[in-house]
Design a protein around this nucleic acid. Structure first.
Lengths: 353, 353
DNA sequence: TTGAAAGCGCTAACAA
DNA sequence: TTGTTAGCGCTTTCAA
């Protein structure tokens, strides 16, 4: 194959094959050196306007795009950020990644995806760290990491931002889970509820994954503030799943003295809880009020009162954090985003019709 | 900085910085040439077992990972597949991508993500084709492409697989939408329904996006087969959204002679339709039966009867198609996956209690 | 089976 | 402001 020529080769019979133009082709056409082409195209200073114009024209005419492998090899920069996520199908993760991607794209970075849901994959991932020489920075999505996993990521020696947890030495983006839970439970108390149940998530998770712990803490704090008893019998694990939420609510409704309101630590668990209410032949909020957490895209559909968290924005901020670090800015840094209460139809004063 | 040494450098005060080992380091340590290291590590033939053993040992000792930019530059292969998707937050897309990623990972390929939801992004994407020199192949997810967009993608000159549509010259993975719709509507007919409404999706979309057209065709064919009239007044656009489905169902229920059953072309529209039923003070399936399409992860929650399509598998197959093309296999090829009926609680004979 | 050597297409010192 | 030149770390002929 001849050296890149930037012209169509091959005969008429076959579909034309385009040999991509190289920086050399552009240099020749613009009558300058490759170094000048590189400078002009990357917008570096010290290029005369006239020269830059000629280079741009030549590049455009040849439909030139720099080879990322060549520039990465020469510069040591990958212009790529790795995103590690436990699931993809779930609304929260997809939405966070969407936010991050948009932000990275604008800064000229690509997004390399690593889903490590299955335990096998997970082991291989942290053991081999396949993104070692492929990316400049890493975004880790709500993934309770073990101690050695944290060290593995740290050994990458690049900027890391964690969404949904805080780890020493890494940047992070979180919401104030304690305050969020308080918002929801206070709403229930304000409506007049005195027996408020809790459907919590993942008791057995790593302690770095602070969402369940913090949301439980917020729940308890409000009860105490309001002078209400904290009854362990009203705290049931819903495992952060729809099915778990359904089981948990069924259990709560089966108590000798069932709660008149329930705070679920996630909307998905709340959806399951709603089904349990329906299956028990009861109504929400008639027999029991329910408040969720997330403002899942389906929450509106269920008319679910919930505590909203900004989701896309968490991805955007995480991306900004690593981009800042890559350009010499402050690192690590921690962002905490606010939550807000969205009142819909599943909450009402106790004993409402 | 010295040539890659594979050892820790820097003084005690600062955190150790690891300079990655290069192929040269491995070669020296194993007492062979870099060419042999390359061959041994990639599992090429013509390397004696003893040599391979020594090379692997050296590579392991130095914690060596080949630089992807260097090998890409030298070989011309990127070992990366680009995925173009309109949204990420939606269950369908996330799940397809998850399937594709797992398959690609096993084959040693990375997944580069391009979300082009916003129209601005879309234009820039097809105009500039940022993945031109970054990937070896492309997966396009259910994205109605315009003619010039198709040509832009074709001009990449690499294997392409489309999920959810069929385009001449590209591989594709689809479900049999006609047969799927027939499955759902036949179920309604079998229950005894004679007035069956249709909530269709996106009438205004490109004609390359065959799902709505095909599903409508299946609906009509079953009616005709059953000797039932095809009433245009019972065919309403739901725009493939929850809100659209709700509006469409409200409209159908407001007809002088409302249908006793409705077939929605997507589960999300069916979810909206269920809400419309509830808001109209009616019950499902008591007053009207409803069948969806997709078997969305929330379908079970709504107890929705629906036509299930394999989702993750579509991603897996699309990945396999481009991987096959990359290793010289048949291209293009088209896969059509079967659908199945999932009967739940939203369908019953007309006039059931 | 192994090695020598020539690139792959860029970037970044350094010189001019 | 621009050009020269030496790599970046691999892969791949071609020879041995």
């Amino acid at each position: 194959m001849s050296h890149g020529t930037g012209v169509h080769v091959g005969d008429r019979a076959r579909r034309e094959i385009v040999v991509a133009a190289s920086i050399e082709d552009v240099a020749v056409r613009a009558g300058v050196s490759t170094a000048t082409v590189s400078r002009a195209l990357r917008g570096l200073p010290n290029v005369s306007p006239e020269t830059r114009r000629r280079v741009l024209a030549a590049a455009h005419a040849l439909d030139y795009v720099a080879s990322p492998s060549a520039s990465s090899l020469a510069s040591g920069r990958m212009s790529t950020v790795g995103v590690i996520t436990p699931y993809l199908g779930r609304w929260f993760f997809g939405t966070v990644i969407g936010g991050a991607e948009a932000e990275l794209r604008v800064a000229g970075h690509d997004l390399l995806l690593y889903t490590i849901g299955g335990e096998g994959h997970r082991y291989r991932f942290f053991d081999q760290l396949p993104l070692r020489r492929r990316v400049d920075a890493v975004l880790v999505l709500t993934l309770p990491m073990e101690g050695d996993e944290v060290e593995a990521v740290r050994s990458l020696g690049m900027p890391v931002s964690i969404v949904g947890a805080r780890v020493e030495g890494f940047s992070s983006v979180r919401i104030d889970d304690v305050a969020g839970a308080e918002l929801g439970v206070r709403h229930l108390v304000a409506l007049g509820h005195r027996r408020i149940g809790l459907i919590s998530g993942g008791r057995t998770e790593s302690n770095r994954f602070t969402a369940p712990t913090d949301r439980s803490a917020g729940y308890r704090r409000v009860l105490v503030e309001a002078g209400l008893p904290v009854d362990p019998a009203l705290d049931v694990d819903g495992e952060f799943t729809v099915a778990g939420g359904e089981r948990a609510m069924a259990e709560l409704l089966g108590r000798p003295e069932p709660p008149t309101a329930v705070f679920a630590q996630s909307d998905e668990m709340a959806f399951g809880a709603l089904r349990a209410v329906r299956r028990a032949g009861l109504s929400c909020p008639g027999d029991v009020s329910l408040c969720g957490f997330d403002d899942h895209e389906m929450a509106d559909l269920f008319d679910l009162t919930t505590v909203a968290q900004p989701v896309q924005e968490q991805g955007v901020l995480a991306a900004r954090q690593v981009l800042a670090a890559l350009s010499g800015g402050e690192y690590p840094q921690a962002s905490v985003l606010p939550t807000s209460l969205v009142v819909r139809g599943t909450t009402a004063p106790p004993g409402s019709p």
